[in-house]
């Protein structure tokens, strides 16, 4: 739900402020790739209505966000591709593909794609955090958006702890990816919490 909330928060921000300054479209592009790699089983595996519905929502909303930021005025007029410049193609996609192949539990396309999507998701926030560091001042709704993006994976970790003790569920790849992903947020969370605590605007060092 936190993940869904972060997407809805971003959609609301784009519609309300009609601007995507401070928002990284490259991060959304990474997430679109993550979802496409991971949700291929939509075509051949039915787990539950909830599971299928959420996969469709995540894929469609992410592509819609990209469309808004890249091609739909007035939002796209405020998008600066030179500022949002983290070269994720070689820095993130490459290593995720290699790691996905090496660490896949079995060398089948779905498993390799799933594993690569876990590694890619764990670092997909980087373009967003780097863009915010350049801008330093973080607008309120953007701060909430990034905070929920960091929080959702932390709640997966809590669920993984529960599932390990309740049903012996083991998911080494997911666990490691989740720890990396949450770890990348820790310093943002610190500044976000401080800005909330002291009631000041969020400014990154």
């Amino acid at each position: 739900m936190l993940h869904l909330m972060s997407i809805l928060l971003l959609l609301w921000k784009l519609k309300k402020s009609k601007s995507c300054v401070g928002i990284s479209c490259r991060m959304q592009e990474c997430y679109a790739i993550v979802f496409c790699l991971r949700y291929l089983d939509l075509f051949y595996q039915f787990i539950s209505v909830y599971n299928t519905a959420m996969k469709v929502v995540f894929i469609s909303s992410t592509f819609y966000l990209i469309f808004l930021m890249r091609f739909q005025p007035p939002v796209s007029a405020t998008y600066d591709r030179t500022a949002d410049s983290f070269p994720y193609e070689q820095y993130l996609l490459g290593p995720a593909a290699v790691l996905g192949f090496i660490s896949a539990e079995e060398w089948s396309i779905p498993e390799i794609f799933w594993t690569a999507s876990i590694w890619l998701e764990s670092v997909s926030i980087l373009p967003q955090l780097i863009l915010l560091q350049q801008l330093r001042e973080v607008e309120n709704l953007t701060a909430e958006f990034v905070a929920t993006m960091g929080a959702y994976r932390f709640f997966y970790i809590l669920n993984w702890i529960y599932r390990y003790f309740a049903e012996g569920y083991v998911n080494w790849i997911g666990w490691l990816g989740g720890i990396v992903q949450t770890g990348l947020y820790v310093d943002f969370f610190y500044y976000y919490a401080m800005s909330k605590w002291y009631g000041q605007k969020l400014v990154l060092p």
């Binding site: 089983d41 595996q45 787990i47 599971n51 959420m54 995540f58």
Partner: peptide
């Protein structure tokens, strides 16, 4: 069916 490990998480 049990041989295919389905990823049941999003």
């Amino acid at each position: 069916e049990e041989d295919y490990k389905a990823h049941d998480e999003l």
